[in-house]
């Protein structure tokens, strides 16, 4: 009995020392026994895949093609320009500007623009402290005077050091952001005359 107890305790201790406990940090991937159903022969997005030459499951679209449902027309909504050979920017947002669009714009601005351009749009985002050198001040009169289509175009394709966000933000959301940027500008240059009568003093 004595030997049994000694062996039992040593074995238990050994298992515990080697296997550790729940939640221990491990650099090695989790063990999967009988993984045929768990990891099936199917493609998952953003996974490596040796079938293709570039070894990706998520393929980029072929040059010159249009993905189903994606915007391709040379229209003001899609490009911010008049289209049909006229490359001038449209002066007003070509979709209905509603309260919903404005709320959406505020939310999208906070996600994608605020880190650099700041909550006010003055170019004093948090990244400035970390070495972001040149950030456009959206309240600059030059930008205030730009047509809506040009701001849309800047969001889509970028400008100077700013990269384009066309791939990250949908067309509707880009227009929503334009609307919100306009609201920020208006708020900044508001005069007493913009207030409703009962708030004016």
């Amino acid at each position: 009995m004595r030997y049994f107890l000694v062996i039992f305790i040593l074995t238990s201790l050994g298992v515990f020392l080697i296997a550790g406990k729940q939640g221990d940090v491990s650099r090695k991937p989790p063990i999967e026994i009988f993984d045929d159903m768990v990891r099936q022969v199917k493609f998952r997005p953003q996974q490596p895949n040796r079938f293709f030459e570039n070894e990706r499951t998520s393929q980029l679209k072929v040059e010159g093609t249009v993905a189903r449902g994606s915007a391709y027309e040379d229209s003001p909504v899609n490009t911010g320009k008049f289209g049909g050979g006229n490359t001038n920017f449209v002066s007003a947002i070509p979709i209905a500007v509603t309260g919903t669009l404005m709320t959406r714009g505020a939310e999208r601005y906070a996600i994608s623009c605020k880190v650099c351009h700041g909550a006010l749009g003055d170019g004093n985002g948090v990244t400035k402290k970390f070495g972001m050198g040149v950030v456009g001040n959206l309240l600059d009169p030059v930008i205030v005077k730009q047509p809506d289509g040009q701001i849309f175009n800047t969001i889509t394709h970028g400008r100077n050091l700013m990269n384009g966000y066309g791939a990250n933000i949908t067309i509707q959301d880009r227009w929503a952001i334009v609307a919100y940027v306009r609201a920020l500008q208006r708020a900044q240059f508001a005069t007493a005359a913009d207030l409703p009568a009962e708030l004016r003093k």
Binding site: F8, S12, G23, D24, S26, R27, K28, P30
Partner: peptide
């Protein structure tokens, strides 16, 4: 002896044969 071994096995299985052990803590 049976109680000890059986108890230890049960404890080990509930503790180790679970994603709480196999997955939690994975930090590649």
């Amino acid at each position: 002896g049976g109680a000890l071994v059986g108890g230890a096995m049960t404890m080990a299985v509930t503790h180790y044969v679970s994603p709480k052990y196999t997955r939690v803590g994975y930090q590649p």
